[in-house]
């Protein structure tokens, strides 16, 4: 931070208002800064409203009896005593009790997402380390291979995988689904971890090597403990993708209601004729809350991990 300019009222000196220069020019500049200063606040308020409102609406409607909604759809608030949790009871109760069985879906989603995280991270750690540190034949082509993962519409993979999984006995199984998720997340995990590995000074590893530690021992005992924050954010991101995924769950699991994930269960719920929108919103809240909680715990790590490398231009 420079001391050349006098920063106006406690702002960082970076874009200080009153500065030297021709008097007319300064007038124009301050006028402009003032306009943009106001616009900036307007923009912040609009952005906050636009971003947060759908979530508020989702939460609100999930507690409203559907008759209330139909009676007065324009309300932003309903009297506390009219609110209900029956919507949640309907969504969570097992199918035998006339509910929608989301308890089972939650378990399925959690299983698939957690397994995907573990396997993806186990595969990505050595891959990212190799790309970051070791000059091996074909290193420059790894990126091309990854491009293949994202270049083709995922629905393209569906038919061959569907047939292959059927032959392996993996059709309609959570294992097959998890395998697809691992592939979808390994490239981005390698990208995130590699960025972090590159920031670890090579001299630390060299010291370990001099002490007689092999490559894999160094990775496990020296590099991984240092990379823990990055591992956490990568794991979180992978969990998020696996938890939120919809297309492959739809393609592979539709015929097996007891294996549905929450996303798929919710989509199927919306096809039901007699399901009120308020129940659908309760299901949406149940699907969203775990992700928002996780994200709240590790927001900073996640954004830093994802954008690693972007600050280099």
């Amino acid at each position: 931070m420079s001391t050349r300019t006098a920063p106006a009222r406690g702002t960082t000196g970076r874009t200080a208002r009153g500065t030297t220069g021709g008097a007319g020019r300064r007038m124009r500049a301050t006028g402009q800064e003032r306009t943009f200063g106001v616009l900036r606040w307007v923009l912040v308020v609009v952005l906050v409203l636009v971003t947060a409102f759908p979530f508020y609406y989702m939460l609100l409607l999930s507690f409203v009896p559907v008759e209330q909604l139909l009676l007065s759809p324009s309300r932003l608030w309903y009297a506390l005593q009219t609110l209900t949790v029956d919507t949640y009871r309907t969504v969570l109760a097992p199918a035998e009790d006339g509910g929608q069985g989301f308890g089972v879906f939650l378990r399925n989603s959690a299983l698939v997402a957690a397994a995907t995280v573990v396997i993806t991270v186990l595969v990505a750690i050595p891959g990212a380390y190799a790309v970051a540190r070791l000059p091996f034949t074909g290193r420059d082509h790894v990126g091309t291979l990854f491009l293949a993962v994202y270049l083709f519409p995922t629905v393209v993979l569906a038919v061959p995988l569907f047939i292959a999984f059927a032959r392996l006995g993996l059709q309609s199984s959570l294992v097959g689904l998890m395998l697809v998720y691992v592939v979808q997340t390994v490239p981005v995990s390698i990208h995130m971890l590699r960025g972090y590995f590159e920031t670890i000074p090579a001299s630390i590893e060299e010291a370990a090597a001099i002490d007689g530690a092999g490559r894999f021992a160094t990775l496990r005992r020296v590099v991984l403990p240092l990379a823990m924050p990055s591992l956490m954010s990568t794991g979180l991101y992978v969990f998020m993708i696996a938890w939120n995924e919809f297309l492959f769950a739809l393609l592979f699991l539709s015929a097996q209601p007891d294996r549905w994930t929450v996303s798929l269960g919710l989509a199927q719920l919306s096809n039901g004729i007699e399901v009120p929108k308020t129940v659908l919103m309760a299901g949406s809240v149940i699907l969203t809350v775990p992700i928002v909680l996780l994200y709240g715990l590790a927001e900073r790590a996640l954004t830093e991990g994802l954008t690693s490398g972007a600050d280099k231009g």
Partner: peptide
């Protein structure tokens, strides 16, 4: 970060 199915139905 929110699940696409949930926010799509909210919209």
């Amino acid at each position: 970060v929110a699940p696409v199915v949930a926010v799509a139905f909210t919209w």
